[in-house]
């Protein structure tokens, strides 16, 4: 079961995302001669020394590990380009377009092909910074969900790894808001009434005696009729108790002598 994600938590494990990212194409420069490969995932090659060819990343890694090629880093893995992205990322609230699997791809290349990437230290720290800025933005963005009524969320330019990390929280939060604002929840408190038979079906039609909690004694009733009875009810029509109805939470009966 190693590498299999727990169906309860995030949908995909980091290893599974890496697996998916390994199918992305990358350019390599082979240093050996090999016939074309006719694989399930496509045809690649032929491989000639010094002739650039495109292969999936997993294939590039396999060749690189055996010292059979050098990897040409994709054009977005370059100090100049990444500096621009980082600046734009800091200046704007929006997410900059980056490859969907930028986290996984950069990580794979740093591990396997660090000698093929110019200015590796600079590149690595830029990617780290970009990741940090973006994650900070995600956190800030999540606050919007709690402020407005949100039914759908557009995650423009979010990468696979980022989406996977925020998934458990975002989906749960949205689901809860959706549930609380759904019409059934407000109108039909039927399912709850089974558990709270005493309060539910009375709803907003609260009689004075009910509100106090016991029938008025005769003497009190008589007294009431000769006085102004002020009844202060604070409706608790918040959604926090699963249903939306008037519940006499705070009641004070004020007798005012005329």
């Amino acid at each position: 079961m190693d590498g299999q994600s727990d169906p309860q938590a995030s949908t995909f494990s980091a290893a599974e995302l890496e697996f998916v990212a390994e199918d992305e194409m990358i350019e390599i420069v082979p240093n050996m001669r090999m016939d074309p490969l006719d694989l399930i995932c496509g045809k690649f090659g032929p491989f000639m020394p010094q002739i650039v060819t495109q292969v999936p990343i997993w294939l590039a890694i396999a060749l690189k590990k055996r010292g059979k090629c050098t990897i040409r880093p994709p054009e977005w893995i370059a100090v100049e380009k990444l500096t621009q992205v980082l600046e734009a990322e800091r200046d704007s609230e929006k997410f900059q377009p980056l490859p969907f699997h930028y986290v996984e791809i950069s990580r794979l290349l740093f591990d396997i092909a660090s000698d093929d990437i110019p200015d590796i230290y600079m590149v690595r720290s830029l990617i780290e910074d970009i990741k940090d800025v973006r994650f900070h933005k995600i956190g800030a963005g999540l606050e919007i969900i709690s402020k407005e009524r949100t039914y759908a969320l557009r995650l423009k330019n979010l990468s696979a790894m980022e989406a996977n990390i925020v998934r458990p929280f975002v989906t749960r939060a949205l689901q809860t808001f959706y549930k609380l604002s759904s019409p059934e929840m407000i109108q039909d408190s039927g399912s709850v009434s089974d558990r709270q038979p005493q309060t539910t079906d009375r709803g907003p039609r609260l009689a004075v005696a009910d509100a106090i909690g016991y029938p008025l004694e005769q003497t009190e009733a008589a007294y009431c009729s000769s006085a102004y009875v002020g009844l202060i009810l604070r409706p608790t029509n918040t959604v926090s108790h699963h249903n939306k109805f008037w519940k006499a939470e705070y009641i004070s009966v004020v007798y005012l002598k005329s």
Partner: peptide, 24 residues
């Protein structure tokens, strides 16, 4: 798919259209 959608990959899909489809 996203990063490698240059002219190279379209040449691949043109030459063998059913094999890579399975994996996808």
């Amino acid at each position: 798919m996203e990063s490698g959608s240059g002219d190279g990959s379209s040449a691949f899909t043109a030459t063998n259209d059913d094999l890579p489809m399975e994996a996808e």
